[in-house]
């Protein structure tokens, strides 16, 4: 028996919107730790890891570890039927081949059940070791989304370079090239509007903008984004989900021939 009641049901709606274009089918894993997902995109270039900790749910019952295979587009379709203020409960019986999403309006005058078929997904689970990153950039998520969108109208790849001067996002394409430099800026009143750069070593890496743009679909989940870079590793683009956990995107770099 599994029963997870999430008062902020719209968090789940936002999570689905953030991952459904990157990943088609995925196993959601449920354990005493929380509700999680790890999946790669079809070309195995990017990986998404989601964690919603059990403490973040109003009610969390998970009698034994369960892995539920879901088509994310279908799940998103069902969650779109929940109101933004609705309480969402995820329910599944042991051994069942369906999952039920229950939506309750805040004043309990409307209750809806949406039952979705589960699927068997043979997915590869990867171990991601803790890493020391050469540079960690924390910036407003809307600013990062804007930069990715702007640069993708010029080129297909972005070079992210971190130096003492700041973080530079560069692209080049047929019509020309573009560079956006963001400097550390902690003087603004609100911490969510500041840019901080923690640099241990300068680093410069090249990534496909198509994936970066896809990651920015998670922008509604968090006002800030953290970009962790190391010269020999995939970049980690992390959106914290307040009081609940995170959604992390890992993207393998492009290297010169």
């Amino acid at each position: 028996m599994l029963e997870l009641r999430l008062v902020q049901g719209n968090l789940l709606k936002k999570v689905l919107e953030a991952v459904k274009d990157l990943v088609t089918d995925a196993n959601f894993d449920c354990s005493s730790t929380g509700f999680s997902l790890q999946a790669m995109d079809s070309s195995h270039v990017a990986l998404v890891a989601l964690l919603l900790r059990s403490e973040g749910f109003e009610h969390y019952r998970c009698d034994r570890n369960v892995s539920m295979g879901m088509n994310l587009n279908n799940m998103a379709k069902m969650l779109k039927c929940a109101g933004n203020d609705d309480i969402v409960t995820i329910k599944a019986d042991d051994g069942s081949d369906t999952v039920t999403f229950m939506f309750e309006s805040p004043n309990q005058d409307k209750i809806a059940d949406f039952e979705m078929k589960l699927m068997d997904i043979d997915s590869e689970h990867l171990g991601i070791p803790e890493a020391e990153y050469h540079a960690i950039v924390r910036m407003p998520s809307s600013e990062f989304a804007r930069i990715c969108k702007d640069l993708s109208s010029i080129g297909d790849t972005v070079v992210i370079s971190v130096t003492k001067e700041g973080v530079k996002f560069s692209t080049r394409g047929d019509i020309g090239n573009a560079n956006v430099v963001c400097r550390q800026n902690t003087t603004v009143d609100k911490p969510e509007e500041s840019t901080t750069i923690e640099m241990h070593e300068p680093v410069s890496l090249t990534f496909a903008l198509r994936y970066m743009n896809s990651f920015t679909k998670a922008t509604p989940l968090s006002s800030t984004v953290t970009i962790s870079l190391s010269s020999e590793l995939p970049v980690v683009v992390e959106y914290k989900i307040a009081e609940m956990g995170y959604i992390r995107f890992y993207l393998a770099p492009k290297i010169e021939d």
Binding site: M40, S43, H44, V45, A46, L47, E124, H125, L126, G127, I128, P129, T157, T206, A208, L233, P234, Y250, L251, A252, P253, K254, I255, E256, D257
Partner: peptide, 14 residues
């Protein structure tokens, strides 16, 4: 142009 690496080249299956 540059070659796109795969995420599985960095992280191992568990």
């Amino acid at each position: 142009g540059p070659i796109q690496l795969s995420i599985t080249e960095f992280y191992r299956s568990t």
